[in-house]
Nucleic acid binder design. Structure first.
Length: 106
DNA sequence: AAGTTGACGACGA
DNA sequence: CTCGTCGCCAACT
């Protein structure tokens, strides 16, 4: 049994998010069959200093507010917004993604 | 080894 | 709005 199963699962799911779509931590956690949304964020956090895995579009992962944690984003909340917009994700306002349109539904 | 923290979510008060 | 609590897992101290 592998131990990093949890993280790998998170990466696997996040990697398959198509452009112009986003997923929430809770959504990912639920897909994995757990309620551990905060560890999903932790898995992404780990990517910051260890991109050992293939490219993981962590900017497509948002919290329930439709945005990343203020200040903990890969390069700043502004970076996230700019990046998602560049992929075609619609924003409801300067800080919130239009989850109704851009939430990746399986 | 044991306790605390963390890119979260949801509900209650 | 803030505060507290539970859920669940890995990393950090």
């Amino acid at each position: 049994m592998k131990k990093g199963n949890f993280f790998e699962r998170v990466y696997q799911i996040v990697r398959k998010i198509p452009e112009g779509k986003v997923m929430t931590y809770g959504q990912i956690a639920k897909i994995m069959g757990t309620k551990d949304a905060r560890n999903v964020g932790w898995a992404l956090h780990a990517l910051r200093h260890a991109q050992g895995e293939p490219i993981v579009p962590c900017h497509r992962v948002v919290n329930k507010d439709g945005r990343l944690a203020p200040g903990y984003a890969f390069g700043g909340p502004n970076e996230q917004k700019m990046r998602l917009k560049a992929e075609g994700v619609e924003f409801i306002n300067e800080d919130n993604v239009d989850l109704e349109r851009s939430l990746w539904r399986v």
